[in-house]
Amino acid sequence: MFSKRDKLFFLSLLPLSISLLAVLVVSVTTIALRSLDALQHFGLALFASSIWNPEREVYGLLAPVIGSLTTSAIALLTALILSIPLAITIAEYLQGALKSVVSSIVELMGGMPTIVYAVWASQYLVPFLKQFAMEPLHSALPFIPLFSCKPVTGFSVFAAGVAIGISIVPYVTTLILEAYQSIPVMYREACYGIGATRYESIKILLSLARPAIIAALVLGFARALGETTIAVTTVGNSMYLSSCLFAPGYTVSALIASQFANAYLYQYAETVLYSSILVVVLIAIALSFYGSTTIVRWRLRVVV
């Protein structure tokens, strides 16, 4: 299956992959060890309340954990809505120079430091969303718990979710584009060979790529979980747990960014923060593993 040169190539990469894996294992172990104190002292009660009062050594991580999951879910939805049309536009409708310009822009956006998104989001996106999404949704559907509160500042779980979602669009788009463009030509020909229009072919080919697209979104979700700068500038940083998306909240990453510097002053603050990282990191690793293996398995089944 592999030639001798391929094997040599893989072998030469082995030390690198092993050291990357080692870094991961060491980091996770460190995080786990550091969170041990908190987990032993507070137990699972740590994740059952939402109080942050280091002076009295009272901690609860429910709000940030829920906040992380909710913002990431909104980010996923945002990326879903924007990335699939963007990838299809690039793959199917743009040609020549325009196609390379747009792909380059997407790549560029992906490489942009997230602080750029954070500034843009807190200055422009949040007020915009407040006026054109949150307020209308609240007026129209106030009986739905998610929309039940009037947005006050606009800085909220919802705003953070959309902002993070926009920041992962380039990443998710690139993954979807790669999958879509790796579909062998013979399946496109098969579509045309049964009289499918362009639109019908796109539908068939998208369904062919569905496992890879879902995996791309899962990877996007994992990345959104870890997003820090954008979260801390848009989520509103409130430990108050609300069922309403338009209320300020917290995410684990935002909590760490804003509390880590002073945590050493208190007995348990630091180890509690580590245990919140542990939860998010474990979820992110599991999702990334699932996402990447799904893409590989899909490629093996469909592409070769």
């Binding site: 020909e189 098969a190 060979g193 062919l208």
Partner: peptide, 10 residues
């Protein structure tokens, strides 16, 4: 059209 290499949708 039926192609030289069979290409049913997998």
């Amino acid at each position: 059209m039926v192609f030289q290499v069979p290409n049913p949708f997998p």
